[in-house]
Amino acid sequence: MIGKILKDQHGHVAGAVPAGPGAARPPITAAHLRKDAWWALPLATFVFLASFVVYSTWAAFQNAHYFAAPYLSPFYSPCISASCVHATFGGGLPDLTFPVIGLLSPAFLVLWGPGLFRLSCYYYRKAYYRSFWLAPPACAVKDVKEGYTGETRFPLVLWNFHRWTWYVAVLFIVVLTWDALLAFRFPAPGGGATWGVGVGTIVMWINVILLAGYTFSCHSCRHVCGGHVNEFSKAPSRYGIWSLVSRINPQHPTFAWLSLFSVGLADLYIRLVSMGIIRDLRITF
């Protein structure tokens, strides 16, 4: 095969006698020769990612305990269906009822956004191609499946639309910041509202900061902000923003994990407060 390519190139890159079609790889059959615990990382990734998917799906189906005034679970924000306990924009979309499932949880109206953002994220792609697809499970360890098409076919080719999901993810940061601001407004004993800070407020702020860190360290963000420019000296402001994003881009995987935990824990916290299992400590002014 290589021999043929060489011929097409008019032989101008003569190697030390180029390898012909029959040229064989080193006769080593082992799938890998690594001696370290290469399997530990993909295994841990698998366990944590799978746990999150299971928990978030379960939480989305609950359609309850996602609001404990003034905290709204990030899984249900923005809450935009008529049946919302706490409607973000006054509640507009009609409720949908399906056979078997019953009333559609408002979580499903919004979860596709962040879900697709993470699913098409360059870091998560690496994580799940290694831990779920096992292509490859680790470096210099053989792919488990024989055939391979990478990201050239449906559905994986769609991940090239990651940028679109990033635009959506930015909107979510706006909404969640609004939620976090509302988390300073507590219902006053005699009606109306009063300012205050609770543990839930802090939980929601940590969450939105980590999510923002994840969203703005994104590779697509880096490209949109300035990565597309070839002559930085002619576009100083884009160069400045690009440099900033480039500084946090190496932390993208860290933000990916921390924000994954924070979003799950924020939901769990609000759920437990709303169920009355734990009491939210708060100070009001």
């Binding site: 008019h10 032989g11 101008h12 890159v13 003569a14 190697g15 030390a16």
Partner: peptide, 12 residues
């Protein structure tokens, strides 16, 4: 160089 039509004999 590789685009100038030079024949390269490597490891020779």
């Amino acid at each position: 160089g590789i685009h100038q039509g030079i024949d390269v004999y490597m490891e020779c």
